[in-house]
Structure formats: C-alpha cells, structure tokens
Nucleic acid binder design. Structure first.
Lengths: 156, 156
DNA sequence: TAAGATTGAGACCTCAATCTTC
DNA sequence: GAAGATTGAGGTCTCAATCTTA
C-alpha cells in the first residue's frame, strides 16, 4: 500500500482507456456475429479453425489449449459440446494414451468453411478496413509487445 | 455464401492474429490480478472506479451501463453483488422514479483507493511500459478507430 | 405505451478435486 | 509421482420475460 505509485501520464491514460474500451467491446461484437450467423461462440470458432489448419485436421487437447490460450478445463467443456453437436470427435492418442486427440469431423470442416467468410468480413469491418497500412503495422507491433510481456510474466 | 470473400493479406492476418491473442489474454491477466489482490473482478473495478470519478460518487444505472459498455441486465447483477458486499447502495432517483441511482459507499471508495495502485501497476507492466512514446500514440489512434467503427455500426 | 431496471432460466467459465496413463 | 484430461460445484453472463414508473 505504498504511496509511490507511478500513475499514468495523460497520453498513457488516454491510450489505455481506448484499449480498455476495445478489449471489452471487440470480443462482444465478434462473438455476437458468430453466434448469430453460425450458432457457435467466437471461442468455438477459434478452436475448430485451429483444427482445420492442422495436419490431419487434428490436435492434442493440450496443444489446442495453447493455440487458443485457454485452460484445459475450459477447452474440455467446449470440445465436449462440439462433440455432442457432431463437429469434433475425441480419441486417445495411439502413440501415447495420456493424450487425447481432438479431430475435426466433415461436419466440423463444413462449419469452418461456412463461418469463415462472415468472420473475416467482421474483422475487416471493425478492425482492418478502418486502418492505414502504417496503422496495421503499428497494431501488429504493439499487440505483439503486449502479448510477449504477458507471456514473459508467466502469469498466463 | 458467395465466393467473393476478401481474405486477409499476410500483414493484415498477422496483425489480426496478434490482436486476437491480445484480446483473449490481456483481460484474463488483468482480471486475475484484480481478483487476487482486491477480490473483485476487473468489471467490478471499472464500475466502482467510474462511480468514484463521478460528481457525488453516483450515477444512474443506465449511465453506468454506458460507461462500462455493459448491458443493463449484467450491470444490475453486478451492482446487486456490490451492494450485498457494502460497496454500493441503490436508491430511486428523486428527480424521476424510473431511474435508479448507484451510489458509492465509503467502503466502496476505500476499495477503489486500495485497488487502483495494483491495477495501474498491472497496466504498466503488461501494456504501457513495454511501448515507446510513438507506439503509445499509435495505440491510442488504432484503438480509437476500432471502437469508433463498432460504435458507428450500431452493433453495440 | 415506452424507458429504465430487475429477475429467472440456461449456458458457460473458473477453480479445485479427481481420474487415467505413463 | 507427474502430466494430460475430465468432472462437479459455485459463480457469472446472456437472453427473454417481467415489473415499475412516467
């Protein structure tokens, strides 16, 4: 409870408030689009999309958890629901029974193919198409710096 | 289901992936810090913080919902819990009985005062202190553009 | 009737505890 | 024992329905 807090300077505070607004609203609108148009959450989409781009359209649960920056517990619940809906199936890894492999079904592939255009359009609409080339470069740089600092902190 | 989708170019895709990673992980680490150190969620903090900066340390529920970019339904649940814990109280607006005014209590004020330094330190650690002055300027610009496009879309 | 606010049901997430395989 | 994965309980969010006041 020390008094020597380094408060944010004006430019810093304005930038942070803008980012705080972004991180509360951007996920909400992208999630709403996905839910409305494809009846899956944005997180579901990230998961099946990651599977669709993997060799054999499959990943170990623990790998998929890293790709989606989620806990194994959350992912397990999500994949269970996706499996109940026929988009994914799970099998023990033949190479090592401790692992579970999540495999995208044909229906899951069709889901990704159907959902991708709307998702990309939303990303363009809310983010990309409003930015100059320089701003896109700056965005990549800033976002990477932030995620690297989160990574480095170990507070994953 | 038209085929004329404008997919993302390489630079655009990389920038978007970095931002997607940020919006999934930054809220998580900031929320974890607040929960660990002050036993409230990040959203709770945004709410009591907004009250603390308002004239009379009070706001109508509908105004507080706009400040926090939340639904009135969510806010109602959050404020109910904050009220049960003694940080906020609610009264009908004397000027117009349709409104409910959320008022920060002394305990709520103390909560904000105690929680603020840790929150600012986390924002510095994960975001601000890793960026140059130019990057902070670019961040403000990019984030503002995105939130303005969300606002303009009406898909709040 | 409409705006502001609340409530209830169902889905989801988090955390801790548990199970399984190596 | 340790890593990967799942489960159960408790808390939270969303959506729709409801209540209240103007």
């Amino acid at each position: 409870m020390s008094e020597d807090v380094r408060w944010l300077a004006d430019e810093e505070r304005v930038a942070w408030l803008a980012l705080a607004d972004l991180i509360t609203r951007l996920p909400a609108v992208l999630d709403a689009q996905m839910l409305r148009d494809s009846n899956i959450t944005l997180f579901d989409y990230f998961a099946v999309s990651a599977l669709s781009m993997s060799p054999g359209r499959m990943l170990r649960m623990s790998e998929l958890a890293r790709f989606t920056s989620s806990s194994l517990s959350r992912l397990s619940n999500v994949v269970k629901r996706l499996e109940q809906r026929g988009f994914v199936r799970r099998e023990p890894d033949p190479a090592n029974g401790r692992y579970t492999v999540a495999i995208l079904t044909d229906a899951g592939w069709d889901l990704v193919v159907a959902a991708a255009p709307g998702h990309v359009a939303a990303v363009r609409k809310y983010v990309i198409d409003g930015l100059s080339g320089d701003q896109i470069t700056a965005l990549r740089s800033v976002a990477s710096h932030v995620t690297e600092r989160i990574q480095a902190s170990g507070d994953c």
